[in-house]
Amino acid sequence: MKTLKIFADGSSLGNPGPGGYCSIITDGEKKAVVKGGEKLTTNNRMELMAVIKALEKIKNSYNIELYTDSKYVVDGINSWLEKWKKNGWKTSNKKDVLNIDLWQKLDQLLQRHNVKAYWIKGHNGHPENEYCDKVAKMEALKYMQNEEK
């Protein structure tokens, strides 16, 4: 099975506030950029949306290496998701999983692929992460600028 890499980042200006996300999908030769945002959201929701929107663009099954500076997303995919599903979408503290709508959507998309999520340190000079961070912030700013008009 072919391998793709996804680099993803999300941002919100305020938490909640205007938010943006950006992902890069690459096979090592070609790259596709996915970006967008929302008027009122949280950083964690945008981190999840960056991954969801990238996976929605990929139509066939692949091995996917996901790189993000969000431990929330990495831990969710690699450790928490299966436990949440077994527990009826409850955390180990018996509380409802936050952002359950996005986690359930992500779970459906993950079924098509073999995904391994890797944490990378943010703001540390990683070119794809830096690019995604910058674009996610620019997407969030679009919503802030619209509010000021």
Rank of each mutant, 00 (worst) to 15 (best):
H123F: 09
H126R: 08
K71C: 07
E47Q: 01
K121W: 12
D75P: 08
K149R: 10
G10F: 08
H123A: 10
W103V: 01
H113W: 11
D107T: 03
Y143D: 10
K30I: 06
G36Y: 03
L110T: 14
L48R: 00
K149V: 12
N93F: 05
E130A: 09
P127K: 07
W80P: 00
K121M: 13
V33H: 00
F7V: 04
E148H: 08
K5T: 14
Y62S: 07
L109M: 06
T41F: 10
P127L: 05
L4E: 14
E65H: 13
G10P: 12
G14M: 05
E128C: 09
V73C: 12
W89N: 02
L106C: 05
G36A: 03
D27C: 01
I6P: 08
A50H: 04
K85T: 04
I120L: 14
M46Y: 06
E147Q: 11
N87Q: 10
T3L: 05
G76M: 09
E147A: 10
N93P: 00
V135I: 15
Y21E: 06
D107E: 15
A32N: 07
K134A: 15
K105H: 05
S70P: 12
F7N: 04
L81I: 14
L40D: 15
T41D: 08
D107H: 03
N114M: 13
A136K: 04
L141F: 08
T91K: 00
V115P: 09
K31V: 12
N43W: 07
G14N: 08
Y67R: 09
N114H: 14
K35A: 11
K94V: 02
L40N: 15
G10V: 06
M144V: 11
N63C: 10
Q108C: 09
K71Y: 14
V33K: 02
I120D: 04
H126N: 15
S79W: 02
N43A: 07
D96T: 00
I120E: 09
L13S: 13
Y72N: 07
N129K: 08
I24G: 02
T68M: 14
K31H: 04
K134N: 15
G28A: 03
S61F: 10
M49S: 14
G10W: 04
E65R: 13
E47W: 01
D75I: 08
I77Y: 00
G37I: 01
K30L: 05
L106I: 05
D75S: 14
T41Q: 07
T3P: 06
N78L: 11
D107S: 13
A54T: 04
R45N: 11
W119D: 02
K2W: 06
K94P: 01
K83E: 03
T26G: 02
L48F: 01
G19M: 06
T68H: 05
G76R: 03
V74I: 10
L110W: 03
N43C: 09
G19R: 01
Y67L: 13
S79Y: 06
N43S: 12
T91S: 01
G20A: 10
E38A: 15
V34A: 02
L48N: 01
Y67D: 11
K30C: 03
S23C: 03
V74M: 14
N146E: 15
K71V: 11
S79M: 10
K90Q: 01
F7T: 04
L106M: 03
V33Y: 02
K90W: 00
W103C: 00
Q145G: 06
N43P: 12
D96W: 01
A136L: 10
E29F: 10
I100E: 13
P16K: 02
I64S: 07
L55W: 04
